[in-house]
Design a binder for these strands. Structure first.
Length: 563
DNA sequence: AAAAAAC
C-alpha cells in the first residue's frame, strides 16, 4: 500500500499560470489513505525511476580500467580492485563494488580510497571473527535491534577498529552514528572507573556535534551500547561541566559528547584535559569545518595531543573545500563514500512547489495542511522569527499540536519540543537549520521547505530528516521568484535522485554574483507581519474553508512512530 | 554562497 501511494504521488507539481488565479490549486501532492483520492499512476507500466533503486545505485560511473590489478594489496580483497589512479603523486587504490547489503530497497555503491583498506564485514558475526569484540557490546547490539550492518557500518567499523583515520560520507539515515560509537566502545578497553592500566584514565573519546540536540541524540545512542558496563559517557553542558571541575571526577569520564564552544570554555578554564583522547569524531563534518566552527574545532583538535589519536569525520555531504580541510587533518586517511555523493536517498520523494512570493506561502501551506498528510511533519524556515511567527500563524488558523524549535529558545523549551516530537505528540514541528542535520525522527515522513534552502547541502540534510533507516519519506520545497538563484542547483539534486524537474528550471542561467548579492540582502519579513499585510484575508478565508480539516485529518493515514 | 548555531 505504501509503495502504491508513493507510486501514485508523482514527482513535480508545478503550475505557474493557474496559481495566479487561485491559491487553492496549490494544495499539492496528497498522501491520502483513501483509495478514491489517489490519482492514477504513471501511464506507462514501467517502474517509476524513483522506485528503481538499482538504477540509482548505478548512477555514478566509475572509471574502469581493464587488466592490471597487481597491487601489493591484491590479496586483501577477493573481488573488487577496480581501478588505480594517481592521486596527488601518490599511488592510491580505488576499491569499488556494488554493496550486497540491502538497506530498505536501496542498494548502495560503496567506494573506498586509501592505503591498505581493511576488508569490510558483511555481518556483525564477521566482525567478531576478525576482531576481539567485547561480548556485552554484541549483546547490546542485538538488544537494540541491530541485526545487520548498513553499508557504512560494514565498511567503516573495520577501518576504525584497525585504528585508521576515516572520512565517511554516507547518506542521511544510514547508520553513521553506530559506525563510530561501536568501535569506540570496542577499543576503549575498560571503563575508567575499573582497572585500566593500558589506556590510562579520563576522557579517551570525544565526539563533536554542531547542535545540542544532535549531541543529546548521540549520547542516547552511546547509552544503548554501554548498557551493562560502567562506562561514563558525558553529554557536555554547563551543568555537567560543573560536576567535572574536580580532577578526580574527570578521571572517571570515558567519553564526552559536546558542541565545540562549550568544550572550549572548559579547556580554557583549565577544567578539562584532552591529552588522553584516543578517538576524536567530527559528526556533520562539513558543518563543523565551515568558517564559523573551524577555528573552534582546530583549537580542540590541537588540545587532543595523544600520539595515538585516531580521527574520523562523518557526514552525508562533504563539499570539496570541507573535504580538503578534513583530509588535511587526518593521518593516512581512508575515504569511504556510500551511494552517490551529494545525492539524497531515493526513498525520499521530492517535489518543488511554486508559490510566487513570500505572502503566498502561508495560504499555500494552509492549503497543503488542509489535505490529508502524515504527521508529524517537519517544516523548515530561514530564520528564528519566521519559525516562531509561522507557528503562531498555524495555531491562529486552528491547527493543533504545532511546535516550534530554534536556537533562540531556552534549553528547556528546546528539550520539551524534542521530547514531544519523539513521543509523537507534535503533528507539526517548525524549525530552523538547527534541526536540519543529524536528527533522527523515525516517524517523520514529510518535510516541507517553507523557505528555500540556501545550499545544496542544507537541502540534502533537511529532507534527510525523513526517509530514515529504509523508510519512505516525502519532501516538498516551496520556491518563489526570489529563489531563482538557487533553484537550479536544487533542481539538479532532485533530477540526480531520479525525479523529473521542469525543463525551464534546468535551463535557468547561472545568476550573476551581483544579483545574488542583492538578493541576499532583501530581508524577509516575519510571517506574522506578512500575513497581516497581505495574506490575512486569504488566511482567514482558508481557515474557514478548512474548518472541517480536523475531521478529515482524523480519517487520514496517521501513523506516528516514536523513537 | 548564506543563515544559524555554538557560550
Amino acid at each position: 500500500m505504501e509503495a502504491f501511494q508513493l507510486l501514485s504521488r508523482g514527482g513535480i507539481k508545478f503550475n505557474k499560470k493557474k496559481f495566479k488565479n487561485d491559491v487553492s490549486l496549490f494544495n499539492n501532492a496528497k498522501s491520502s489513505s483513501s483509495a478514491t483520492d489517489v490519482p492514477l499512476g504513471p501511464p506507462d507500466g514501467d517502474l517509476p525511476s524513483e522506485l528503481d533503486f538499482f538504477k540509482y545505485a548505478q548512477n555514478t560511473s566509475v572509471k574502469r580500467k581493464a587488466g592490471d590489478s597487481t597491487g601489493p594489496d591484491k590479496k586483501r580483497r577477493i573481488d573488487d580492485i577496480v581501478d588505480k589512479e594517481e592521486d596527488e603523486e601518490r599511488q592510491i587504490e580505488i576499491h569499488a563494488q556494488e554493496s550486497n547489503i540491502t538497506e530498505g530497497y536501496a542498494k548502495h555503491r560503496v567506494v573506498t580510497k586509501g592505503f591498505n583498506v581493511p576488508p569490510h564485514a558483511n555481518t556483525f558475526d564477521a566482525l567478531t571473527n576478525r576482531y576481539r569484540i567485547p561480548s556485552h557490546l554484541l549483546a547490546n547490539l542485538s538488544t537494540n535491534g541491530y541485526t545487520q550492518p548498513t553499508s557504512i557500518q560494514s565498511y567503516g567499523i573495520p577501518i576504525l577498529l584497525e585504528h585508521r583515520d576515516l572520512a565517511a560520507i554516507s547518506p542521511t539515515g544510514t547508520g553513521k552514528t553506530l559506525t563510530y560509537t561501536f568501535p569506540i566502545f570496542s577499543s576503549l578497553g575498560n571503563p575508567s572507573t575499573t582497572a585500566n592500566s593500558d589506556a590510562g584514565l579520563g576522557v579517551r573519546a570525544l565526539i563533536l556535534s554542531p547542535t545540542r540536540e544532535l549531541a543529546h541524540q548521540i549520547h542516547n545512542e552511546c547509552l544503548k551500547l554501554s548498557q551493562g558496563r560502567k562506562w561514563k559517557v558525558v553529554l557536555f553542558s554547563k551543568a555537567t561541566a560543573n560536576t567535572l571541575t574536580d580532577k578526580k571526577a574527570r578521571d572517571k569520564v570515558d567519553i564526552i559528547i559536546s558542541t565545540p564552544l562549550r568544550l572550549i570554555a572548559s579547556i580554557r578554564s583549565g577544567h578539562l584535559e584532552l591529552e588522553n583522547v584516543r578517538h576524536l569524531v567530527l559528526d556533520e563534518a562539513d558543518r563543523m569545518l565551515d568558517s564559523e566552527f573551524l577555528s573552534q574545532v582546530q583549537e580542540i583538535v590541537a588540545a587532543c595531543n595523544h600520539p595515538k589519536l585516531q580521527k574520523a569525520v562523518f557526514s552525508a555531504t562533504l563539499p570539496a573545500n570541507a573535504e580538503k580541510i578534513a583530509m588535511g587533518m587526518l593521518n593516512n586517511p581512508i575515504r569511504v563514500v556510500v551511494g552517490t555523493k551529494d545525492t539524497p536517498l531515493p526513498l525520499i520523494t521530492q517535489s518543488l512547489t511554486y508559490v510566487a512570493d513570500d505572502p503566498s506561502k502561508l495560504p499555500s501551506l494552509l492549503g497543503y495542511l488542509s489535505q490529508p498528510y502524515n504527521p508529524p511533519v517537519l517544516i523548515f524556515t530561514s530564520s528564528q522569527p519566521r519559525a516562531s511567527s509561522l507557528a503562531e500563524e498555524l495555531i491562529l488558523n486552528g491547527i493543533s499540536n504545532v511546535d516550534c524549535l530554534h536556537a533562540g529558545m531556552s534549553k528547556k523549551e528546546r528539550e520539551e519540543a524534542i521530547s514531544r516530537m519523539r513521543k509523537g505528540m507534535s503533528w507539526i514541528l517548525i524549525s530552523t537549520e538547527v534541526m536540519a542535520r543529524g536528527m533522527d525522527f523515525k516517524g517523520v515522513r514529510e518535510v516541507i521547505n517553507y523557505d528555500f534552502p540556501t545550499s545544496v547541502q542544507s537541502y540534502i540534510h533537511r529532507i534527510g530528516r525523513t526517509g530514515r533507516a529504509g523508510r519512505e519519506g516525502k519532501a516538498v520545497t516551496f520556491f518563489t521568484d526570489e529563489d531563482a538563484s538557487y533553484l537550479k542547483s536544487i533542481a539538479n539534486v532532485i533530477l540526480q535522485s531520479g525525479f523529473s524537474v521542469p525543463d525551464w528550471i534546468l535551463k535557468l542561467p547561472k545568476p550573476s554574483k551581483i544579483k545574488r548579492r542583492t538578493m541576499g540582502k532583501t530581508k524577509r519579513p516575519d510571517t506574522v507581519n506578512m500575513a497581516r499585510k497581505v495574506g490575512r484575508r486569504e488566511a482567514i478565508k482558508k481557515r474557514d474553508m478548512i474548518a472541517g480539516s480536523k475531521r478529515r485529518r482524523e480519517t487520514a493515514d496517521i501513523s506516528v512512530e516514536t523513537n
